[in-house]
């Protein structure tokens, strides 16, 4: 399988932006089990301000399905891993990628913070042994490991963080992989709520989003799905237009990865758009420009 041999080159440089093709999406946040339900929230009313429990058990039927993971494992993993597995599966399916051959990059700021807090509490008793399962489930690449095992995927993967620039740097990492011929890739962004006492009063809802990415112009990476035709997009350091200011529900605003939902929102709308990926930086930082939906006049857009 070829993905078109890369999206840019050292000789050309990134002046015109790093081109990518967005092929599919995944999304989960309490009250919104997928991208479609999220895109309809302005019509159906916002549910995300409702109390958002953080443990999968407390979410009950609203917990992420995470059907990618074996049932026994699903019950034992954190909300973070379940969210990540759920949105990865959605993005892979909507893009028509082969789940055993996709390269997946996971972005999260605090990672498996709730499992880490359990371990911090256990350390207070000098005689208590640490749970080996909790220990290996506290690493930043926990979801990466479980998903690779569940999908029998032997490609490399990675887990990264760049604080509030995590989405921007995750997209750059994916652009690098695609340029190196290691695409198609899926970028998974997932962030749990921060537990007390570490949160020190910070409170926000958990969220996860995934972006299925391939080389711009590539044609043979998978079938174009019914719910979202491919979008050509570019990572640029200085936008030509005014970046969009996403309208996010208040419960999500404090989440350091909230921009991932804003990008989903723009990708679900057919028109051209631009989003600032690093609005916290004084100089503005990286932006993503989305062209109008490739099939905007086609049957998918009407559906």
């Amino acid at each position: 399988m070829s993905d078109g041999g890369g999206i840019s080159s050292a000789e050309r440089g990134p002046e015109r932006g790093l081109g990518l093709s967005l092929r599919g999406l995944g999304l989960w946040t309490p009250g919104y089990p997928d991208a479609l339900s999220w895109s309809q929230r302005h019509v159906r009313g916002d549910r995300s301000n409702e109390a958002a429990p953080s443990a999968p058990s407390a979410l009950g039927a609203d917990a992420p399905r995470a059907e990618l993971l074996p049932p026994m494992l699903r019950r034992r993993t954190s909300l973070l891993t379940r969210m990540a597995a759920e949105v990865a599966a959605q993005a892979i399916a909507s893009a028509g990628f082969d789940r055993a051959e996709v390269t997946t990059i996971y972005g999260s700021v605090y990672g498996e913070i709730r499992t880490t807090l359990d371990l911090l509490a256990a350390l207070q008793d000098p005689a208590a042994p640490l749970s080996p399962t909790k220990f290996h489930n506290s690493v930043h690449n926990t979801a990466a490991g479980y998903v690779s095992i569940a999908t029998q995927n032997r490609r490399g993967n990675a887990a990264l963080t760049a604080g509030r620039s995590t989405l921007a740097m995750g997209l750059i990492e994916c652009a690098g992989l695609i340029a190196a011929g290691q695409g198609p890739t899926v970028l998974v962004i997932a962030e749990e709520t921060l537990p007390e006492p570490l949160a020190a009063g910070r409170s926000y809802a958990p969220l996860a989003a995934a972006f299925a990415l391939a080389a711009a112009g590539a044609t043979d990476v998978g079938a174009v799905p019914g719910d979202m035709s491919s979008r050509t997009c570019r990572l640029v350091q200085a936008s030509r237009g005014d970046p969009a200011v996403p309208r996010l529900p208040a419960a999500l605003l404090g989440n350091p990865c909230a921009l991932a939902l804003a990008l989903c929102e723009l990708a679900l709308q057919p028109g051209a758009a631009c989003l600032s990926l690093e609005p916290h930086l004084p100089a503005g930082g990286w932006c993503i420009e989305l062209d109008a939906r490739d099939g905007a006049k086609g049957p998918e857009a009407a559906a």
């Binding site: 930043h140 990675a158 992989l177």
Partner: peptide, 20 residues
């Protein structure tokens, strides 16, 4: 600027990312 964290392979992965 970013951090890669894949447990004990973290700072070997950074060479791959930088070359790309």
């Amino acid at each position: 600027a970013y951090m890669l964290s894949t447990a004990c392979s973290s700072s070997a992965k950074v060479f791959a990312a930088a070359q790309r």
